[in-house]
Nucleic acid binder design. Structure first.
Lengths: 134, 134
DNA sequence: CCGTATCCTTAACGATACTG
DNA sequence: CAGTATCGTTAAGGATACGG
């Protein structure tokens, strides 16, 4: 956005205010809040593979508790990223599916994950190096 | 990976075990742990704009406390995503820069953020709709 | 200026039990 | 099957003060 290298002595209160307002209003920031969530991202990525029912998804996203999965899916449904289809059978079936926006976001997420996976070997050795020096 | 639609009655203990092992070993999962972090992602994205010194970055990533920024930068340095350049001047200067892996990951992150920002209007209206029905 | 150390408060989370 | 409700624990995170 603006050059960072020049920011040096500063601490000008007006600068502070501008940066403050900018950050809070910044869409990146709001976007981050939505995506910086472990279970939410894992659920979105899992749903890339197709529709899932609650307990199937729970098994697929290993380690998630009933409570957290329910809460996560509600949040995703609220944001219009997944749809919740209830079939009034006995026992009840509830299927979760990605919406169009959800699909687009999940695709970007998967791209990020691919990028991350590509760096995992490098990250691992970096960690070992770092840990040995400390 | 495998078809999800067929997963239905299940709860087969062997299935469970396979899924369990798969999930824990899955690189996506490890990758997620690294990226599902609010401050880490914000710092990476900020460093896309160029090198930052500690307090400049602290102002740029609004709302982060000294403690969290320090902890975050240490984690990123440990993973080899940022480098920490200390200049032994008075007062000391410490500059943080993205490494090559860090740059690649930050790029993917930014792509995700762009995708998310594109959906923000849709998400907002979806939320209003949802909130009105509840 | 660049952090570390400490205390403290909140809420995230898991485990368990229960309902339609 | 698909959740909700409650409780207890733990860890994340902010505020503050101090050190190199």
């Amino acid at each position: 956005m603006t050059s960072a290298a020049s920011r040096d002595t500063a601490a000008d209160p007006i600068d502070e205010l501008i940066i403050d307002v900018f950050n809070r209003a910044c869409p990146s920031r709001q976007a981050m809040e939505t995506v910086a969530d472990k279970w939410g991202t894992l659920a979105l990525v899992a749903l890339t593979e197709g529709a899932y029912r609650f307990n199937a998804l729970r098994r697929r996203v290993d380690g998630v508790s009933e409570k957290m999965l329910a809460r996560t899916l509600q949040a995703l449904e609220r944001d219009g990223l997944v749809t919740r289809d209830v079939q009034a059978t006995i026992p009840p079936r509830v299927e979760y599916t990605l919406t169009a926006p959800g699909t687009r976001i999940a695709a970007a997420l998967r791209a990020l994950l691919d990028a991350l996976e590509a760096e995992i070997p490098a990250i691992m050795t970096a960690r070992e190096d770092y840990d040995q020096r400390h």
